[in-house]
Structures are given as structure tokens and as C-alpha cells.
Amino acid sequence: MTDTSPSGSAPVLDIESVRADIAELLGEEPAAVGDDDDLRDLGLDSMRLMHLVEKWRARGARVDFADLADLGAPTVRVWSAHLSAS
């Protein structure tokens, strides 16, 4: 899952931890969520997205709902790239 390093630096939001968080929220196994699947097709809606944003913020990520919504296609690959660059 998503962790912070022992030194308290920024959270690690790699593609696998992002996938695991999304899968958990959708009630799926991580393997069922592909890198380029449109997450809306898997059942991710705006309320669930807000939940993810709050979860990632609580772990230290600098992210907004609008940031993720404005990235185009909502996919694990796109979101994890954005989160790791934040």
C-alpha cells in the first residue's frame, strides 16, 4: 500500500499502491484494475474519487479533486504518474 518513508518524506504513490487503493474502494482485486482501464467504466464516480483524494491527502499527497478530474482519461497509469510527480 501507500507508505511514507521512515524519515517522514513524501508518500510513495507508485502505480501498484494507487491500483491497490482504487481496487479496494471498488471492491475489486488489484489484478482486476488494468493500467489503462477507464476507471469510470469500473464504477469510479465523483464521490469515490473524493474519497481517494482525501485518503491520499491524509498520507501526505498534494492532490485535489480537480487535479485528477482535469487529467483526461481516469486511469491508474495517468493518476499514478501525476501523484508521483506531485
Rank of each mutant, 00 (worst) to 15 (best):
residue 1 M to L: 10
residue 1 M to N: 11
residue 4 T to Q: 14
residue 4 T to W: 08
residue 4 T to P: 00
residue 5 S to A: 14
residue 6 P to G: 12
residue 7 S to P: 03
residue 7 S to Y: 11
residue 8 G to V: 08
residue 8 G to W: 01
residue 9 S to Y: 07
residue 9 S to V: 03
residue 9 S to C: 07
residue 11 P to Q: 11
residue 11 P to S: 05
residue 11 P to C: 10
residue 12 V to N: 10
residue 12 V to C: 05
residue 13 L to R: 07
residue 13 L to A: 14
residue 13 L to D: 02
residue 13 L to Q: 03
residue 13 L to W: 03
residue 13 L to N: 04
residue 14 D to I: 02
residue 16 E to M: 09
residue 18 V to S: 01
residue 21 D to A: 15
residue 21 D to M: 07
residue 21 D to R: 12
residue 21 D to S: 15
residue 21 D to L: 10
residue 22 I to D: 02
residue 23 A to H: 10
residue 24 E to K: 13
residue 25 L to G: 07
residue 25 L to P: 06
residue 25 L to R: 14
residue 27 G to K: 08
residue 27 G to D: 12
residue 29 E to Y: 07
residue 30 P to V: 09
residue 31 A to N: 11
residue 31 A to S: 14
residue 33 V to H: 01
residue 33 V to N: 05
residue 33 V to Q: 00
residue 33 V to G: 06
residue 37 D to C: 01
residue 38 D to S: 09
residue 40 R to P: 01
residue 40 R to Q: 10
residue 41 D to T: 12
residue 42 L to C: 09
residue 43 G to Q: 06
residue 43 G to H: 05
residue 43 G to Y: 08
residue 44 L to H: 03
residue 44 L to Y: 02
residue 45 D to I: 02
residue 45 D to F: 06
residue 46 S to R: 04
residue 47 M to K: 06
residue 48 R to V: 09
residue 49 L to W: 04
residue 51 H to A: 12
residue 52 L to C: 06
residue 54 E to L: 11
residue 56 W to D: 03
residue 56 W to Y: 02
residue 61 A to R: 04
residue 61 A to K: 06
residue 62 R to F: 04
residue 63 V to S: 01
residue 63 V to F: 00
residue 63 V to I: 09
residue 64 D to H: 13
residue 64 D to L: 10
residue 64 D to W: 09
residue 65 F to A: 10
residue 65 F to Q: 11
residue 66 A to G: 10
residue 66 A to R: 14
residue 67 D to L: 02
residue 68 L to S: 06
residue 69 A to R: 12
residue 69 A to C: 04
residue 70 D to T: 12
residue 71 L to G: 06
residue 71 L to I: 13
residue 73 A to P: 12
residue 73 A to W: 07
residue 74 P to M: 05
residue 74 P to G: 00
residue 75 T to W: 05
residue 77 R to I: 02
residue 77 R to L: 13
residue 79 W to T: 09
residue 80 S to Q: 02
residue 82 H to D: 05
residue 83 L to V: 00
residue 85 A to Q: 15
residue 85 A to I: 01
residue 85 A to C: 02
